[in-house]
Design a protein around this nucleic acid. Sequence first.
DNA 1: TCATATAGGGCTAAATTTATCCGTATTGAT
DNA 2: ATCAATACGGATAAATTTAGCCCTATATGA
Lengths: 121, 121
Amino acid sequence: MYHKKRAQTYDCGLDLVGEILYGKWKIRLLYFINEGHIRPGQLQKKIPEATRRVLNVQLNELENHELILKTIFPVLPPKVEYRLTELGQTLIPLILSIGLWGDKHEERLREILKKTNEQRQ
Amino acid sequence: MYHKKRAQTYDCGLDLVGEILYGKWKIRLLYFINEGHIRPGQLQKKIPEATRRVLNVQLNELENHELILKTIFPVLPPKVEYRLTELGQTLIPLILSIGLWGDKHEERLREILKKTNEQRQ
DNA sequence: TCATATAGGGCTAAATTTATCCGTATTGAT
DNA sequence: ATCAATACGGATAAATTTAGCCCTATATGA
């Protein structure tokens, strides 16, 4: 497992949240788990752009950060389920608001991103 | 300027927000600008862990993404001011909620991060 | 016997992001 | 003449994150 070389300082709440939510797929993982897609395979179907590997990595981090809980059923073929911890649940309203904001400004944001992505040629 | 090689797909509002807010210092920049620290030098003082260079890079991105507006005053020594665009302003409530969540769970989060950072030795 | 379903992780490569270093510019004060 | 204040960005290095490839494991059913 990779470990950071640069020391981290967490000055304020915003920093702390940044640290645990910073990851390309994390917020979406939380979102989908909350929606009931609780098995690894289901999550992969919801986020096909990500490889299974990365999802595992990020799920592990979410678990270490105590936002989700993993249950491994001792059956074959293997079965795993994730669910939000209490702490994780308290994040859901925030995630939903962020999503709503994005939906509300979707058109505008797409234009903006289109423009800036074009510039980079 | 760096340009991305991997194609991006934005499936939902959450994706779009992710794209424009993903950056180590962006949320804090928005936060501080909203608090009235509108000049580059002031922002650097508020975020001393970041180099001036990176702040510039991220400020530029925020500007391109139309979340902030830059005013260059033609004086010497140079003077620059940033302020939130209307779009940027609509993000503030979200950012504040995130910060509040972080503050509320500060102790818990520090413990969690301490643990996970220790593991990585 | 072989594919299928299911989930995991090591290792390495590539992409992306962040940090460092250094050079530019100008006025006014020492 | 030099330095401080103020701000910007190119080029490159380092750190970090994400992706790709490949191997493990086992019961069931074709």
